[in-house]
Design a protein around this nucleic acid. Structure first.
Lengths: 244, 244
DNA sequence: CAGTGGTCTAGACCACGAA
DNA sequence: TCGTGGTCTAGACCACTGT
């Protein structure tokens, strides 16, 4: 019924759960595993990709496949911005670069500027442990003051851009976030040190000021195996209670 | 720099945007495209998978690959439950099945019941056009009354389960939603008529009552090419405004 | 039944990492 | 340098769709 590689993935998952390979340990080479399961190497690699997307296995080019330590996924909390990392996110190092980019048709429409007009682009890459975890690109009109690239104590989610905007008296009072699942582009895969076959969460965040104008566009790319989005709704759901 | 199939994907995207194949039209067979781009068929298929995950191409087994009509993606609005479909979602047909499932270790821990105890499982599959769009599985303790499988006017997101709970005086007052990107399981791929290589959004929704107890667990599987999640934060962001 | 996409194979060759 | 994973190939065979 299921595909062949999914059966292999199931079997590998069972073996890992059974502790055949300790957490953090290297799996046998792919060629050896392929031989053991009597499948070709591409089929075995498909199985490993499934386990990788589940966060159970970590692939290291040139080194091997490793049983992943159950480090918590990096969490993006929506609806509740904070400058301090939420609990469970330990030792996240964030790098930020600033550049000037020309607005493409999409960004120009969103930010209500002409195509080609200069935007300030902030690129945040967060590392947790040895590998990158998140890639965030934030675009604001160049009229906003420069960030000056502070490199310490940064949030992985580009919050400092909003601080910078607030210093210029531009206040983001509403946010919409659109989330889809897709494959990373070549650039994104390279920046995140992931295969281009790893599913990623792509989150597009729009920040609105009091006049309902978009003043900030952020593109977040979160590898499915290392990060997740957490949405919390604390308020009672009125409609349901009255309709029920 | 980039992979070969990504170059092919770029070229195909360019041709589609240029209108070489009208929207809704069938692309040439994969064998022919592979020959034209001088790549093997697996490589060409990788390129098509990229375009599919972007929602630009729709694959139909046995029929061909089609330039996708720009139908809006099905939207899951978080933080604002409503019984009526949000604007832009037209003609969504929802099928619901009810079953009794035994709680596995994960569900039992969440719902605070013993492993193996009976749960009511609701399976919602929504169709928009000819193909399924969303798969939602909702689990509640069996103590709750039966839904009786209403089959009309259903929300694709399992809202009717909350109505049913409310009728039993169980009120969901808070919700957390955890979102990741991964590959679908064989079952999910089959139910959604997608390849098991299509990235999906996996959303796990927990409904809490006033006592902070989980009374509802929902697993939403949203194919990346056909659906998206929209998060809206309307309230001012206090922390940012005071810090800035 | 013919034509299409879906899956898998066996193997070549390249790129990376550690010794 | 060598062993590892990453990519691509050419082709076989199966499954689905429409005639």
């Amino acid at each position: 019924m299921a595909n062949r590689y999914q059966h292999v993935a199931d079997e590998l998952r069972r073996l890992i759960d059974a502790g055949v390979w300790p957490v953090g340990e290297r799996l046998p080479p792919e060629s050896e595993l392929a031989e053991r399961f009597r499948v070709s190497t591409p089929t075995l690699r498909n199985a490993l990709e499934v386990l990788q997307s589940e966060g159970l296995v970590e692939k290291r080019h040139g080194s091997g496949n490793f049983v992943r330590r159950p480090e918590p996924r990096l969490r993006y909390l929506t609806g509740s911005w904070s400058t301090h990392a939420p609990a469970g996110n330990t030792a996240v190092v964030v790098h930020c670069e600033t550049a000037v980019a020309a607005a493409d048709s999409r960004l120009s429409a969103l930010l209500n500027v002409t195509v080609g007009s200069p935007l300030t682009e902030y690129i945040f890459v967060s590392h947790s442990g040895a590998w990158p975890r998140t890639l965030v690109r934030v675009y604001v009109p160049e009229t906003a003051g420069q960030l000056g690239s502070p490199t310490d104590g940064l949030s992985p989610w580009g919050d400092s851009v909003r601080h910078r905007l607030a210093a210029d008296d531009i206040h983001v009072v509403a946010t919409t976030e659109q989330i889809t699942a897709r494959f990373p582009t070549a650039d994104e895969a390279h920046a995140l040190h992931i295969t281009s076959r790893t599913p990623v969460l792509a989150l597009e965040r729009l920040g609105y000021d009091a006049n309902q104008c978009v003043v900030e566009v952020a593109l977040l790319v979160l590898p499915g195996d290392r990060s997740e989005v957490l949405v919390t709704t604390d308020s009672p759901i009125k409609k349901l209670e009255t309709t029920g």
